[in-house]
Write a protein that binds this DNA or RNA. Structure first.
Lengths: 313, 313
DNA sequence: GGCTCGAATGATTGCGCTATCATTGCGGAA
DNA sequence: TTCCGCAATGATAGCGCAATCATTCGAGCC
């Protein structure tokens, strides 16, 4: 018991024993077994982080910032890649919960009924990120995808664009952005919209391929993409054809990834502050995990977004 | 005990009890506690994956494939972001080992002496990836960075380039690629080389900024980058200045990220097959974790690389 | 000296599982 | 009928730690 104290709460132990323990640890190469510690104290010091993928700069950034914020407090991250389907999330959730994490970060708010029940039953501090809803499971830090789509639609209409091409990943959040865009365009006289869906993960080649189709068949004057990387592909395709950007074709990305400002011309996009989102989510979670007893709070933080006009609109 | 069996080794239990247990699990919402299971069986079903960052498409891809290969076998991944310094690796290693992972994947082969000792003492199956050495800790799946640098050097010299600019991240593996390149150029009459280092993570804006410096001051006829994303920045900078690529300036990236083939002109680069690397690493680890007793093997697999000539050389 | 008090240390228990060995039950051979 | 052998089930212990309560010790006081 004294050794345990010397390692975990050294202030409760005399200088002399603390040193003695330290020396013994060094000599024997003792490595504490936190599995046993977790079982005994019912604190795993593990946070489950569920994201669709890390092969997408937006989620990679969020993952990076959340882990960076959690590490100094002694929390390890257990990563779960849930893709874009509720079934996959459900499956991973089960194995994740069986590790008794002290906290959970979930991407998105649309979970299966079973998943919701399990999460609620787990009585673990929980942050949903990257989305918005009126009925959060616990805490929520994100933004509204519908609002993004609507804002992009209004913006393009203001800029005089009417024949809008859309290249969107086949994931539900991207689809809701497209729906928001469609709603605005539908209410605009003369406006039209053509959607091309691509698989996940989004990639630059997809952007080139689908924009080639749009350019060949649809006489679009703007292409909206569900991610910056797709928009890069559109830009490359336009350049390869000598299409004037933004004169003949406007391009909008999504995410404001680090490269958006460095393309030529610089990419117009929707800025999502992934670093702040990740940091806030981590802060909320840490605050809750520090409290002795679990209690749901239903706390919502809408971080919003910003349309960034650069050189492609 | 019968419940434990019904859940973990159902073939040892009669149909009737299996169903009875199943129903009880459903009714009570029982979620097994794998922390306790791990303690009792000394099998955590956890694999530690240590990468410098996930905010880099190459490591994101490797992370993604390793996790995808491990998940079906019931292994969860504990992610550790070690950056590019041995100190950070050492620190994270301690907390990682205290969770008693069943296996470890490490990026790189250059560890501190303390880290080596700890890893060896842990007696855990281990794969080093993304590098090459004569003294692997256990298993190794990777490629030689020096060889990459040399190959790039020879290739550019063959193509007639002599004034080589280099934009390299300040990480040790990138530096070893630069060293290989330098060795070749040093042995080539008339060849010269200028290096600009950038911080991590590499990004497109860094590529633009440093290539602008090189173009302004050094009259280079080729720029070699330590990653594709930097090369994209160089390409954008060249386009913004109307510099003819590859006529006046050749550009080489590194990694063959998914976007390299989609730029205009398409990016010449060094292909590293991250998917195969990740898959092989996971396979080796799984095979070893399936064995009852630990024994070091010092098994090395050099996956090599390939120079891909596209439109920028 | 005897007493109190607080700091430091120690003994015991149990976290929820699985390894191991023991027991039960049942069909078929002797 | 008895006995064996196997499948199924059960009882027990222990994994390595931390929570909890008990004990010891020494300083300071009367």
């Amino acid at each position: 018991m004294t050794v345990s104290r010397a390692l975990n709460r050294p202030e409760l132990v005399s200088e002399a024993t603390r040193l003695k323990v330290q020396r013994a640890v060094l000599e024997t190469g003792y490595v504490p077994n936190r599995v046993a510690g977790a079982l005994a104290s019912s604190r795993s010091r593990l946070v489950a982080l569920l994201v669709p993928t890390v092969a997408h700069s937006l989620f990679a950034e969020v993952t990076q910032t959340i882990m960076a914020a959690l590490a100094p407090q002694g929390y390890q991250v257990m990563l779960g890649l849930v893709g874009y389907t509720p079934e996959q999330e459900e499956k991973i959730l089960e194995t994740v919960l069986s590790r008794r994490p002290d906290g959970i970060v979930l991407t998105g708010c649309r979970h299966s009924e079973l998943a919701r029940r399990r999460l609620l039953a787990a009585e673990v501090p929980l942050v949903e990120i990257w989305d918005m809803t009126d009925e959060p499971l616990d805490m929520l830090v994100g933004f509204s995808h519908e609002a993004v789509g609507e804002a992009v639609g209004r913006h393009l209409v203001e800029l005089g664009r009417r024949r809008i091409g859309v290249i969107s990943a086949d994931d539900s959040r991207a689809r809701r952005r497209v729906a928001g865009l469609a709603a605005v365009l539908h209410a605009t006289p003369d406006a039209s919209m053509t959607v091309r869906e691509v698989g996940t993960p989004s990639s630059m080649p997809w952007g080139r391929e689908k924009s080639a189709e749009l350019l060949d068949n649809e006489a679009v004057d703007a292409i909206v993409c569900s991610s910056d990387i797709l928009a890069m592909g559109v830009l490359a395709e336009a350049q390869s054809r000598g299409v004037d950007v933004p004169g003949a074709l406007a391009i909008m990305g999504f995410g404001d990834s680090s490269y958006a400002k460095a393309t030529f011309p610089a990419l117009s996009t929707v800025r999502i502050d992934g670093a702040t989102l990740g940091r806030r989510a981590a802060e909320h979670l840490l605050a809750r995990m520090a409290q002795p007893h679990f209690q749901r709070v239903e706390q919502t933080l809408d971080l919003g977004f910003e349309i960034v006009d650069r050189g492609t609109t």
